[in-house]
Computed example of a mutant assay.
Amino acid sequence: SYRALGLPQLRVGTRVPTEVLEHLVGLATELRAQRSKPTATPEEARAANAALRSSMRERGNYFPDIERAAAGALARASYVGGALSQGMLLSVVAQHGFSVRFVPDLPRSVRSLTDLRGNRIYVKQEPVGGHSARAVILQALGHFLLGHDTPRDFADFLRQRVEANYFAAAMLIPETAAVAFLRDAMSRRDLAVEDLVDVYSVSYEMAAHRVTNLITHHLELPCHFVKNDASGIIYKAYQNDGILFPADITGAIEGQRMCRQWSGRRVFSAPDRFSPHYQYSDTPAGTYFCVAQVDPRADERGYAISLGVPFEHSRWFRGRETTDRVKSNCPDGECCQRAPLTLAERWDGMAWPSARAHSHILSALPAGSFPGVDDVDIYEFLDQHAAD
């Protein structure tokens, strides 16, 4: 780092004052810290997301190396099937030299914190409806089993996060058993996300995302996945079936608003939003069969999770007999992005909304090797618990 600055070599002799040495050491420490901070603007983050999603689509959202790592970890712990119990989970963690501590005072900026000196994974026991402690622990373990190092930049941070999440899902819904389960359901024309939720005791979101990992690679079924809130803002999305998501000029989908006719929007007005909502959607890219459900484990705002496939593959899924069929012309503005002419003529210029401020869109993402993590908080926490 010093040579890269192009400065002359500094000869440190006995006559160099201690204050100067302290000054140099302080500058060197800060230079090292600054070089490790993968700060990104919202635009850079969206571009990184778009690139990562393209990579996932090319491989059908299937990561064979991570599948093998998860299968190996389960085999060493003598896993025999079914939902991964907490006892089996702790056995898996112990097999790799780590222990788990549940604490009430975990720093707010993290879901888990690993002490690499004491090989402890600290987790806060979340209340019902929060993140699954099993998934959080396995995500932390996945970083080490997958050989992750300090992220080089924000794109590397995102990649590592996706891989750790994939590892946790592959541990909680193991490939071999899950594929056999899905094949059997397909033979009965009864594929359904909620069955994986029941069998493996995972969230609806994890089960739906795990289906996208497996059904293209093993069952040759293209698909799409979306997570959105009640206003239609997209938080996560994936597709390899040709459906057209709303996107900005960089190709980013996150933060865009989905069509009002899509199942992820309509489920919020369904009589029972916590039960599967089935529908067919005629779109400019073709007709799709989709099932959406508001995840009951999500926070109070609620998020809809949608899984869909092209019309010709609907025959394999539960709910295909639905008569609910809608037409969506989005991204054509005449579909639902502009108000009907009569309403626009009546209210144009007569409305002044006070919008919620989303201050995060105006600034760079939080700096740090792990964006958004407060280093002071985590170091103080580790120091406090080191003697426990």
Rank of each mutant, 00 (worst) to 15 (best):
R297D: 00
P366K: 02
Q9K: 14
P8N: 07
R260P: 00
S85F: 08
G60I: 01
Q384L: 12
E312Q: 14
V294D: 01
L31C: 10
S306A: 13
F289C: 01
H385F: 04
R161L: 09
T176K: 07
E312W: 10
A357H: 04
L221Y: 04
V103W: 02
V80R: 15
M171R: 04
A178S: 09
A45S: 06
A344Q: 13
A45K: 07
A164F: 06
L196D: 01
P246Q: 06
C330W: 02
L145A: 05
A77S: 13
S275Q: 14
G81C: 09
F154R: 01
N228L: 09
F98G: 04
G333Q: 11
I253N: 06
R35F: 10
D149K: 11
G60A: 07
T212N: 12
L27W: 14
S201V: 13
G87H: 11
D295F: 06
G147P: 05
N329Y: 11
V92S: 07
V25L: 15
L90P: 04
V25K: 15
R120P: 00
Q86E: 13
G60V: 03
C259T: 02
A339P: 05
V202M: 08
R318I: 00
F311R: 14
G129K: 10
F268W: 14
L362F: 07
A237W: 06
L244C: 09
I121M: 04
T250W: 09
A252F: 03
R76V: 12
M206W: 05
F225S: 02
V123Y: 09
S369W: 05
A83I: 08
D241Q: 10
V103L: 05
R159L: 11
A351H: 12
L52W: 11
Q293C: 03
K327T: 03
V110A: 05
A247T: 11
A387W: 12
G242T: 02
L191M: 13
H313K: 08
G368S: 06
C336G: 09
G333A: 14
L362E: 06
F181P: 02
V197K: 14
L24M: 13
M258G: 08
E163G: 10
Q95N: 15
V20M: 14
F225T: 01
S201Q: 13
Q384I: 00
G286A: 07
E380P: 00
F167M: 05
E312S: 14
D324L: 10
D115F: 07
